[in-house]
Design a binder for these strands. Sequence first.
RNA 1: GCCCACUUAGCUCAGUGGUAGAGCAUCCGCUUCACACGCGGGAGGUCAGAAGUUCAAGUCUUCUAGUGGGCACCA
Length: 938
Amino acid sequence: MEIAKSYNPKEAEETHYQTWEANRCFTPEINENPDAETFSIVIPPPNVTGSLHMGHALQHTLMDVLTRWKRMLGYKTLFLVGVDHAGISTQLMVTRQLKKDEHKTPQDIGREAFTERVWAWKEKYGDTITNQIRREGLSVDWSRERFTMDESLSGAVREVFVRLYEEGWIYRGKRIVNWCPKDKTVLSDLEVKEETHRDGKLFYLQYPVKDSDKKLTVATTRPETMLGDTAVAVNPDDERYTDLIGKTIELPLTNREIPIVADEYVDAEFGTGAVKITSAHDPNDYEVGLRHNLEQLNVMNTDATMNSDAGVEFEGLDRYAAREKVVEKFEELGLLEKIDDYEVVLPICERCKTVIEPLLSEQWFVKMNEMRDMALDLMERENSPHFYPQIPHKKVYTTWLKNLKDWAISRQLWWGHQIPAWYDEAGNVYVARTKEEAMEQAKTAKIMQDADVLDTWFSSALWSFSTLGWTGETTETEDLKMFHPTDVLITGRDIIFLWVSRMVMTGLKFVGEKPFKDVIIHGNVLDKNGQRMSKTKNNGIDPLDAFEKYGVDATRITLADAATGVDFAWRDEKVESFRNFANKIWNATRFCLMNSEGAKVDYSYINPQAEAVEIKKSLGDELAEFDEEDEEFLDRVVPAFAEDNPKENLSLADKWIISRFNKTALNVNRALGNYNFHEAVQLLYHFFWDDFCDWYIEFVKDEITSEEANTRRDATRSRIITILEQALRLLHPFMPFLTEELWQKLPEVSKDLHNDAYKNAEQTIMLADFPRGDVSMIDERAESEMQAVIELISKVRNIRAEMNIKPSDKPAIHVAANADLREIFKSNEAQILKLARAERLNLSETPDVPKASAKAVLTGGAEIALPLEGLIDFEKEIARLENQVNKLETEQQRLNAQLSNASFVERAPQEKVDEIRERVAEIETQVIVLKQNLEALN
RNA sequence: GCCCACUUAGCUCAGUGGUAGAGCAUCCGCUUCACACGCGGGAGGUCAGAAGUUCAAGUCUUCUAGUGGGCACCA
């Protein structure tokens, strides 16, 4: 078979995904077993306007690893995909396009036409992200793809809104909200970020007191808001101002008079101890205003220009222009006391970075306390959802819930779920599922729907169940029964509040159960300098570039390897090393395939259970009463049917690699079960590269490359290709394309190697049984025997390298060892000679070597010597041996100190003490041998 | 201001109270018939600092320093 010299990811990536998707390998129905356990996971819906970034690539990889793993284990598996309508960003994008193409604003064409444009935009460009998801190789069920604006999901949104309203958990009210003057919409607290400005100013303004020559100085960072001042507040206990309480201020630049009030809110220590109160432009001032029954004077328009209430001089000015003008005027009036430099922290719009203007406005809110209590109760009762890692996310989540305030859900946009509330001409509100219902309530057809739409996160909050068919009307679907609650949610910590917590709350409230069992919070991918990736810094690494450069599989396994829950810096070198790993897998397979004539994948070598199943199949009815667990049966029947009686003929290396494989499989399953992706990757990397390639392949190389066809060679070929086949399965969840590509090339791989759950499916590794690992196949004896052989070879190699022996020089190896070891070495003589590049293996009971030898000692005290007549540098050899003695003696001293500590021997577990005693004995043995060797040299 | 996390080899990071680990980089030697994206062999650590608990601390406790994050305040 022709196979390229190195792995080219492109080809594999282009073909296999299409095949998988076309064969519906991703739909849960491919699993025909009605009793199969289920596994489900929903994707955090990316923005429809979005494109893939490293954070997606990371979380998508982890989700797909779990999904593919569970699917191969035979679970009925749903990985649900979909996108979010992303209210603000989408609206902005379409608005921009409208302006560019037609020089029109949304208002010019009207709401209906605009919404149509957005849908058209979505049709045209909305699949960018979904195609990138295909590129990543995600095994998501496209037949269940969802969009938050789908009719069914929209129905769920309306239903939830109406029910919450009817229960009094949604209300409409006038509050100070976070207003983005650029996007011209309200934002929830979570969509507001902070920005520190060191060059800020604190302005000290003097307000004349009426009927007095006194002036009261207030400090402010936003002088323009003084145009909307409705009071000045001081602390009631502040003796400086006691006499002013109840007096009146003649507010400069306006014709208004405002009271001086006393309020505990004021901190006498800060600034001047007197606070200007702008009830309509600051949340704290608003509260003060309510307490003192102050007027609510809004002096700004929604674009943050001043309105007519700010006075004719200021009307129409932008807030910053107004600020300058106010300051100028105060200076002219001699009322500007001073301007201090001051570090200000400004609230900014997370999306457009515009400074938020707190604004008094009428909006819809969700009262969160009751749903919040449900979520807290769930956490208290059953530690659910279970966060991975627990620390710090559990605490952050519960603390946030405890301090939760009402959620502003209305948005002044046209793209989204329009609020199902209608107003009659008198302004009475009717909340209903449809306009017809609202008209019934209003007893008139003259009603108008609320113009606002809901926060995009409102629909996302329902994602776990709205995607499975819940509409309120329909509350029980097959999918809900089968897949809700989902098993695990994987997301970043920045949306624990925005999304995770809200899904928990709505899930409990509307489905009556938690939406997911576990929540994995992954770390952020930082740039190579440890900085967060951001558009402004332009330090983002595009996953598509990584796919291009290193391949999807290498990128995936790099991300999985880095997924320990903490942030990590992206390193190209890291991906490179996993690209090398992919190439290593490719070449190992290439080598096996070059020597595969006469070989076939045969599960029986490593899994007697499966072998028994195969035999059972071939015998059909004859063995209807056959019991897979019946070991006696296996012993009796298996050899009779296995042509080469594999278990009898296994070499040490075979037993060893089978043992290593099963250990690896067991540990990989355990690691994935604990969501420990890093550990799983490390296990696989080590097994494949070190155990399989560096030792096993090298051990059997001569045998399988033999030109001469014989049953022994072919049996070995079959064994190696079987181990390889199994290893590819273990790797598949991480590296789906490479493993599929190679798996398809293996001889007879498609025959009888299928997962029973998918019996009518196309042959693909993604539907093959995932190796679970079998404890009974772990052979500790084989492992330690092989270890001895490895140690022997390594020590010889070490001597060769340290003594600068040329590769072409082939010394003899003298080994003095006990009978057991000699037996082991003898039966692996050919491999030892080859891998140690030696000519002859001389085994004896006691050392018998020429003086000019380089020596080493093995675990257990066996000695090895390489006669190096004429090659040996005595000084170098002495230094080498002394170095080894020193190392051992340092350790010996430390251990002896421990053993001479009476309380250690007394209080430490006996096995620990024994362990150390054994180690000391081992060191002593080795030191004696090394010292004898040293003496011989001196 | 309150809370949290992190600090381990040159770099990026694992690490479960019991001998300190990986990848990359580095050094030495190899065009050995799967792979130079490779093979073989090395060197490299006061586990941020201090104190404590323990027979035993990278790991548990407290304090200190540095870095990062969250929340609150921000007149």
